[in-house]
Simulated scan of single mutants.
Amino acid sequence: MKALGVRPGVKDSLELLQVDAPGEAEGGVLVEVIAVGLCGTDKEIVSGEYGEAPAGSDHLILGHENLGRVVSAPEGSGLAEGDLVVGIVRRPDPEPCAACAKGQWDMCRNGKYTEHGIKGLHGFAREQYRAEPDALVKLDPALEGVGVLLEPTTIVAKAWQHTEAIGQRAFFDPKVAVVTGAGPVGLLAALLGVQRGLEVHVFDQVEDGPKPDLVKALGATYHTDTLTDSGVLADVLIECTGVPSVVMETITKHGLDAVTCLTGVSSTGKRLPVDVGAANREAVLGNDVVFGSVNANRGHYEAAAEALKKADGDWLARLITRRVPLDDFGKAFERQEDDVKVVLDVQGA
């Protein structure tokens, strides 16, 4: 069968492979892949920046954002032929550590977790895969056209869940939220903020194209100025760019008792002059919290599935700006001006 893979650490080694069909030892549920979403992580793996093949393999099948349909499943698994499913990306470490043993592999304590399409496990950019039932999340049939957005939604579902948990340290009644970055993760973060009844402000640089309209369609406010210049003082800030100057703004420009969640992974090697004393003073006197968040556990997948189910389907569909057949995978990695989310159509290849 067809699969899209790389040789980890080898720049531009992306190619369409012929691989064996998955064996039953890989899991009791056989899944036909419908679509795979692409993100910055995939591009960095293609660039050879990181990525780890499974033991004994010289290649890594790409793809962690995914949507599939059950071909067959064991009795009593809670799954049946035809069900829409998403494979959970991170799997617990084999020991397991205390966090993984509690189903919180997103908080793995020893770093021995694996991740489909990223670290030690083949990804979902292939025609079929197998998994155990507990590694799959069932979706509402109405999400067939947009279910591939579930994995990026899990990232912000975790961000919001942790933000709200931290907020319970004391009086917490947020009214205003800021999201920096209007890529897929930022837009989905804004969606979850609006669903919580908050006044949401989204900051990005682009002045036209689909992003401003997508934000406005949520009932949120779109900004092209800086957070500093806007004068917006948020109670909750979700940072989705990883841009150092933007990160520093979210840490220092907000209301009192604010909670800032950093989800954007920054590139290294860039230096930014920072008045650490001033930043510390503001954080201490303002009772601020700044925390980082990555990946998600099953609870976040289930929360994300509920959020997508409640969202406007037409709005979600607008996030997917291009669908590219698997055979034309090269085009999917060619950046276009109005791209928001690009998806590989696996069965349409």
Rank of each mutant, 00 (worst) to 15 (best):
D12R: 11
E144K: 12
P325G: 08
K112R: 15
A278Q: 12
K270P: 03
L136E: 08
S266N: 06
L84Q: 09
A131H: 09
E24P: 13
F291Q: 08
R271V: 15
D83R: 07
V89N: 04
V86P: 04
A170S: 15
D314Y: 01
I45S: 00
A189S: 14
A190Y: 01
L60I: 12
G78T: 03
G117S: 02
P94A: 14
A55C: 07
L17Y: 13
V290M: 05
D12S: 11
A234M: 11
K175T: 11
G231D: 12
H201A: 06
A279C: 11
R271I: 13
E95H: 14
L198G: 03
A35W: 04
L149C: 08
I61V: 15
I34P: 00
F333E: 13
P133M: 01
G147W: 03
Q128R: 15
G264Y: 01
L121N: 10
F329E: 09
C108P: 02
L62N: 04
E52G: 02
D140G: 07
K11Q: 11
P325T: 10
K341Q: 10
T163I: 14
V10R: 13
E24V: 14
D42V: 11
F171D: 11
Q205A: 15
G51H: 04
G269N: 11
A99Q: 12
E65C: 05
S47E: 15
D20V: 04
Q205K: 15
I251Y: 10
C97M: 10
A53L: 07
